[in-house]
């Protein structure tokens, strides 16, 4: 396979990056095109997930992250709401986290497919993959069952990373779920400590009953707007 990109170089434009319309691909590569000033490749822009991902991205058991019957499993749930407080029924949340031992190695098998029928098999019931994907329901509600995340090295407190996609959201949003019983670790966490109390609260789940149940609402805009993050 012929490659225009020398991987060691990392700076050459890739094949197919915006050649001028009407030119054969071999002629169309303007070296400057697609290159950000720092000599990096310019990224492919984000677009909204749209309203019709529902038959493509969610999969059965997407929120069942904890191995079946695991005694340490927790339930995390909440609503996604818009700037008027109305539920967002077409949001898709993705969760990614460390295992209870703090491991970020993850494991394949979140989506596990059936090679016989082409359908979904669900998870294998043993491995903790660290990944969950849940579409909100008509009430804007979502639920995940997972294992409590293990800690990164102090001073950071343990958390679950959440990526929010929705119709109307042109670029996904990242937020984090911290847990209320880690009060001491949370107080020392550099991100939480940098936020004023009212904003900081939006990142800490609320303990609910029965034990092991936590509530985490996501407000996209307005009163109680969730803190969203960007990574540099």
């Amino acid at each position: 396979m012929s490659e225009r990109l020398a991987p060691t170089q990392g700076l050459a434009p890739t094949r197919g990056l915006a050649p001028a319309e009407g030119l054969a691909p071999s002629e169309g590569l303007a070296p400057a095109e697609g290159l950000a000033p720092a000599g990096k490749l310019a990224p492919t822009p984000s677009h909204t997930v749209g309203p019709f991902y529902g038959y493509a991205l969610p999969f059965p058991g997407g929120g069942e992250m904890a191995p079946a019957g695991h005694p340490g499993a927790i339930t995390l749930h909440g609503h996604v709401r818009d700037g008027e407080g109305a539920p967002v029924p077409d949001a898709l949340l993705e969760l990614w986290q460390a295992g209870p031992d703090g491991s970020l190695a993850g494991a394949g098998g979140s989506i596990r497919r059936d090679p016989v029928t082409g359908g979904f098999l669900g998870r294998n019931g043993v491995d903790f993959t660290g990944f969950g994907r849940i579409a909100t329901d008509a009430d804007g509600h979502w639920t995940a069952r997972t294992l409590p995340p293990g800690g990164p090295a102090a001073p950071a407190a343990p958390y679950i990373s959440v990526c929010v996609h929705a119709r109307g959201l042109l670029h996904h949003l990242f937020t984090r779920v911290y847990f209320p019983e880690n009060a001491e670790a949370n107080a020392a966490d550099p991100l939480l400590a940098s936020l004023e109390p009212a904003r900081r609260e939006t990142l800490v789940a609320t303990a609910a009953s029965p034990a092991g149940t936590y509530r985490f609402d996501i407000r996209l805009q307005g009163e109680g707007e969730t803190v969203f993050l960007e990574f540099r």
Binding site: W96, L104, S161, L169, R199, L220, F231
Partner: peptide, 28 residues
């Protein structure tokens, strides 16, 4: 549809160390 579904507060920047969860990725 973007009007009520975007945050009005600025995003909070995170400069992660290698243990930052988001600097790793789910495995498929």
């Amino acid at each position: 549809s973007s009007v009520l579904r975007h945050p009005k507060q600025p995003l909070v920047a995170v400069h992660g160390d290698p243990e930052t969860v988001e600097l790793h990725t789910p495995v498929f």
